[in-house]
C-alpha cells in the first residue's frame, strides 16, 4: 500500500510550518511521528494535498519542568523519551506509568505524545492521562498562541478544536498542589492492541489528604471519559477503603462501554471499577511505605 500523491514540505521553524498550513487552506496535514497518520495515508482514510513534516524542527523535541513544577511536553517528544525519563518517573507518575503501554516499543521510538493527543482516538492512552492531569494544549496559528484545556480540545472521535492553520506545539500539565501521585492501567489483549478498558488516575496529595483528583477512562465510550464524580468523591478526603470503594463505584457508573469482541459492557464496567480500586490502593500502600 502507498499513499496518494501529496506535496511534501519540511519546514525548519514553527512559523514556516504555520504559514504552510495556512496556505494549505484545510487541505494540508501536519506530520509528526506519523504512527497513526502514515497508516491512514496508506489506507487512504486520509489523502491531504500537502504534508507538513515538522520532524526537522528539532527544538520541539523536549519535555521539561518549569521551576514551579509545570510540565511542558513539546510536539516532537516521542513516547520513548517519556518512557525513559527519570525526571518524569520522579515527578509525574501517571505519565510514567502510561508511557510503556502506548502501542509497542518500536512505534514508541517514533510516535509523539502531542501527536497522539491530536489524533483524538477515543481509545488513545494519552488523552486519558491528559484529562486526569487537567492538561492543556498550546496551539500556535497565524495570529499567535492560545491555550486549549484538554476537556475542550477533543470535539469528537478524531476531531479536535485546532484550526486548520494551527499547530499543537506543546502539551502543558499544571504543577501539582503538593505531591503528584497516580498511575495508569490498561487491559489489552496483546501488545499494541487498543484498550479493552484503561484507567488513568492522577492525584495531588498534601499529607494524608487528596487536594485534587482526576480520573479518566479509555476504551469505554465513544470518547475519553472524565469520571469527574468519582474524582470529586476523593477531594478533601484521605484514601481509605471506603473512599476508594466509592470512587471505584462512581467511575464504573461513568463508563459508557459497548459490548464488542473485546468484552461485554458489564465486563468492561467491572474492569473499570477494579482498575480504579487497584490504582488507588497502590497509591495508598506506597504512601504508607514511604
Amino acid at each position: 500500500m502507498y499513499p496518494s500523491r501529496f506535496q511534501y514540505e519540511s519546514p525548519k521553524t514553527v512559523a514556516e510550518a504555520v504559514a504552510l498550513l495556512d496556505q494549505g487552506a484545510g487541505e494540508a496535514k501536519l506530520l509528526a511521528g506519523g504512527q497513526s497518520l502514515v497508516p491512514m495515508l496508506k489506507l487512504r482514510f486520509a489523502s491531504p494535498a500537502m504534508l507538513v513534516d515538522i520532524n526537522g524542527i528539532e527544538e520541539l523535541r523536549y519535555h521539561r519542568f518549569d521551576s514551579d513544577g509545570t510540565l511542558r511536553i513539546g510536539a516532537l517528544c516521542r513516547h520513548e523519551d517519556l518512557e525513559k525519563s527519570d525526571i518524569i518517573r520522579q515527578k509525574q507518575p501517571t505519565i510514567s506509568a502510561a508511557a510503556p503501554l502506548v502501542a509497542d516499543p518500536i512505534v514508541r521510538t517514533r510516535g509523539t505524545f502531542v501527536g497522539s493527543v491530536c489524533h483524538a482516538d477515543p481509545q488513545g492512552d494519552w488523552a486519558a492521562t491528559m484529562i486526569a492531569l487537567n492538561g492543556r494544549i498550546v496551539a500556535q496559528g497565524p495570529k499567535g498562541r492560545r491555550e486549549i484545556a484538554m476537556k475542550d480540545f477533543v470535539l469528537g472521535p478524531f476531531q479536535t478544536a485546532l484550526e486548520h492553520n494551527e499547530i499543537a506545539i506543546e502539551a502543558v500539565i499544571p504543577a501539582p498542589q503538593g505531591v503528584a501521585v497516580g498511575g495508569y492501567i490498561k487491559l489489552e489483549r496483546r501488545v499494541g492492541d487498543f484498550a479493552t478498558a484503561s484507567v488513568a488516575v492522577a492525584l495531588d496529595v498534601v499529607g494524608d489528604k487528596v487536594v485534587r483528583a482526576g480520573i479518566a477512562l479509555g476504551g469505554v465510550g465513544s470518547r475519553t471519559i472524565d469520571a469527574s464524580d468519582a474524582a470529586a468523591a476523593l477531594v478533601g478526603q484521605p484514601l481509605t477503603d471506603a473512599t476508594i470503594a466509592k470512587a471505584a463505584e462512581l467511575a464504573a457508573a461513568a463508563a459508557e462501554p459497548r459490548s464488542d469482541h473485546r468484552g461485554s459492557a458489564d465486563y468492561k464496567r467491572h474492569i473499570v471499577a477494579t482498575f480504579v480500586s487497584r490504582l488507588l490502593n497502590q497509591i495508598h500502600s506506597s504512601k504508607e511505605a514511604a
Binding site: G34, D53, V107, R110
Partner: peptide, 19 residues
C-alpha cells in the same frame, strides 16, 4: 520491516523515504 533509524528501531513501512 523494522530497520534502525539513527540507531533506534522504526517500522520502515510507516516512514516516508523522504523523511
Amino acid at each position: 520491516c523494522t530497520v534502525l533509524f539513527d540507531g533506534r528501531p522504526i517500522k520502515s513501512c510507516t516512514m516516508l523515504a523522504v523523511q
